[in-house]
Design a protein around this nucleic acid. Sequence first.
DNA 1: CCGAATTGTGTTATCGGCACCTTCACAGGA
DNA 2: TCCTGTGAAGGTGCCGATAACACAATTCGG
Lengths: 363, 363
Amino acid sequence: MPYVNAYITADDKKNIEGIGKPSMPPRRNSTAGRSRLEDVARHARVSTMTVARVLREPHKVAPDTRERVSAALDATGYTPDLVARALVSKRSGVVGAIVPVLSNSLIADVMQGMSEGLARDQRQLMVGASGFSAANEETLVRSFLSRRVDALYLTGTSHTPATVQLLRAAGIPVVEGGNMTDDPIDMVAGVSNIDAAASVVTYLLKRYGPEIAYAGASPVDNDRVRDRHLGFRRAIRDAGVRLPPECEIQTEMAMASGREVIDKILALPKRPRALFCSSDVIAAGALLECQRRGIDVPGTLAIAGYDDLDFSRELVPALTSVRIPRYEIGMRAAELIHQALSGKRPKRPVQALDFELVIRDSA
Amino acid sequence: MPYVNAYITADDKKNIEGIGKPSMPPRRNSTAGRSRLEDVARHARVSTMTVARVLREPHKVAPDTRERVSAALDATGYTPDLVARALVSKRSGVVGAIVPVLSNSLIADVMQGMSEGLARDQRQLMVGASGFSAANEETLVRSFLSRRVDALYLTGTSHTPATVQLLRAAGIPVVEGGNMTDDPIDMVAGVSNIDAAASVVTYLLKRYGPEIAYAGASPVDNDRVRDRHLGFRRAIRDAGVRLPPECEIQTEMAMASGREVIDKILALPKRPRALFCSSDVIAAGALLECQRRGIDVPGTLAIAGYDDLDFSRELVPALTSVRIPRYEIGMRAAELIHQALSGKRPKRPVQALDFELVIRDSA
DNA sequence: CCGAATTGTGTTATCGGCACCTTCACAGGA
DNA sequence: TCCTGTGAAGGTGCCGATAACACAATTCGG
């Protein structure tokens, strides 16, 4: 043994510390066949550090050693333990995303984009569903922070004060997605729901006149829907139109709401010429209900939605809507996170993506 | 100092080991404001163990001490480090789910169910998108195993041999979801796509006769679609019908495929009376294309889909389909995982859920 | 041909919790 | 008075990996 260490060796220490202690069981081996760095090291007759280097910075290891270690890695079927790595390196490689529900086409597309964006840098996506509750969101934020996610994605821009405080204190990159705000927690990727909604409504007003109605889901803890409603109102106001409150219908975010919406519209004293819905889901429901009742769209009632879902262009008549770059929002969020974690604070941490008014046959 | 330890103390050890070593910097403090158990302990003037006890078994701590520790916990804003906990306890509390894509209504619903099911036991869901590639799936399995997930959910029942071997060796609970198989890796929650498809097709044959066609997405690395196709063929065979291969159309899984499908059907020498599609998405596309072309459904062509998506019942005519308990598949998967992780191997690790033939106006 | 720089590898101390064990104070029985 | 049991709190080592450093061997400049 040519190498002699001047310091006290591990064995010596064991003896010193082991005074009066019962001896350790030699090996626990609870996890079936899962080999550790040390097993590989023993197999290749090197230290654990050398194995770790082969895995993460192979150029720093001599070719023949590297060879031997690689063989040992194969032989033992080693799987690196990213939990341990995360503990010491303070980087988990996991990004959390908190969404209202996963079973929503818009959100699912955003998650798909994010998942792909994160995968490029070997990061994984952990998701939590808050069920449109800001309180649940807060709980999830706590949980994710405990899990030491490297960054967080939040849906929307309105959160409890405690959530905001937690995130500020945590000091990790945070992306709020799907909407715009002047005062982000950290970064934003989304479109202005107010502007987008206003643009449809302005179009409707110009083409069909001031007799217009709104149907939308509940805005509670949902700033996207709230802002679409605000956009509707802004466009109305800007056009100098005054509307009675019954022209603003609150309903469920479901296709089946179409019936209810059309019922209410037919019951209005002044029959609207046009209808703007906070989502294509509701708009499609209304359109199909009109079809069932033989109401001509857009002849009798023009209908426009929001979000340009897959089926919107296929409906007869095809639905007028606003295209939101759903997938891209997720991708941008991943990119912002990547930049932030790479040390470079993104130059433009507020990414306002473009929406597109898609005029089809229904309005 | 009343307390004297018979063993060599930490300080002594430092001195022994520290011979010739430069002294440590007193504190690193890289992570902003994140307090550790030790910080809380110092604040409350107790040991870390006492703090840990207050967190996990408070009854073992004297009330006044507990009080003091609680105050310290609040004051320091302590967040438990689940990464460290995972390392020592060998339980990460994370379950991985590998899906083809997130932006698919069926899958999104399953994930929603799973997410809710897991949340009940404080577990988190980590998702990965394989993009309908078994090779990517294998990569994701490796990655998730490295992250030490407690259990895994896989979409479908066909995987690479290496994937199966990895999972068997890992010894963690695995749920394959969304389809049925006789030979699961570990557990299954789903419906038999073969039986479900066969049931629709048998119905179509009975009602509309033997002139029938099939339109489906690519079955490559997608056993659900493959099995729906097999179900179609089984029903045909069982009815003693022989069909030319042109009656089986492969297309994209998108509404826009409707045009192509209808084109091909109209070009067939013997015009089919009924069409079965591997998904409501394709069926709806076909139905709407018929509407655009003025083809009567079901008068001229009856159309049935698979999976009973939200919009299917709203279409005019409403789409005949098979209802799959999407949300429940996810929930069941979570339950199976919960049972397996609680020590009790589930009695029925193969959960064959019921499908339901939903007959509406389109067929 | 010697000291300095470079390269390759080894050693140690954590990372933040928790399991396991020990110590201490004190109460109550012998 | 001594012993022992019990409840409350503290000490130690380790989970598996890595950063930081330490040292041996080799290369290289002058």
